[in-house]
Computed example of a mutant assay.
Amino acid sequence: MLGRDFFQRDVLTVARELVGVELVWHGCSGIIVETEAYGAEYDEACHTATRPSARQFVLNEPPGAAYVYFNYGMYWLFNLLVKGGRRDGLILIRALEPVSGIKEMQRRRGREKVTELCSGPGKLAVAMGITGSDHRTPMAGRGRPTGVGLRIPKTGLAHEVAEDIRVGISKAVNHPWRYLARGNPNVSVPHGKVKVPGLESK
Rank of each mutant, 00 (worst) to 15 (best):
R109S: 04
K113L: 14
E112C: 06
A140M: 07
R107D: 14
A158N: 09
G129W: 08
G101V: 02
L92W: 02
K154G: 15
A127S: 12
R136L: 04
H159P: 01
A158G: 10
V99F: 03
T155D: 13
E112F: 14
R109E: 02
V114R: 05
M139P: 02
A125G: 04
K103M: 12
G110K: 11
P98Q: 06
G141R: 00
Q106C: 11
A158M: 12
A125Y: 01
R151T: 14
P153F: 07
H159I: 11
L124I: 05
A125T: 15
D134Q: 12
L157C: 05
E104M: 06
S100M: 05
E104I: 04
R111Q: 15
R142Q: 06
G143H: 05
G132Q: 11
H135F: 13
L96E: 03
G156W: 04
E112I: 12
R136S: 15
C118R: 01
H135Y: 08
I93E: 00
G120I: 01
A95N: 02
A158Q: 12
L157M: 15
G141Y: 04
E97S: 12
P138F: 10
E116T: 13
G101C: 02
S100C: 12
P138H: 06
R136F: 10
I93S: 00
Q106F: 15
P98C: 08
C118L: 09
L124Q: 00
I102L: 07
T146E: 03
A95L: 03
I93D: 00
S133M: 10
M105L: 08
L124P: 01
V126C: 08
A140C: 06
P138K: 08
P145R: 05
K113E: 14
G149R: 02
K113Q: 13
S133Q: 15
I130Q: 02
L150C: 07
R111Y: 06
G147T: 08
L157P: 05
V99H: 03
P153T: 06
H159V: 15
G143T: 01
T146N: 13
P138W: 02
T115M: 11
G143D: 11
I152L: 13
G147Y: 09
S100R: 13
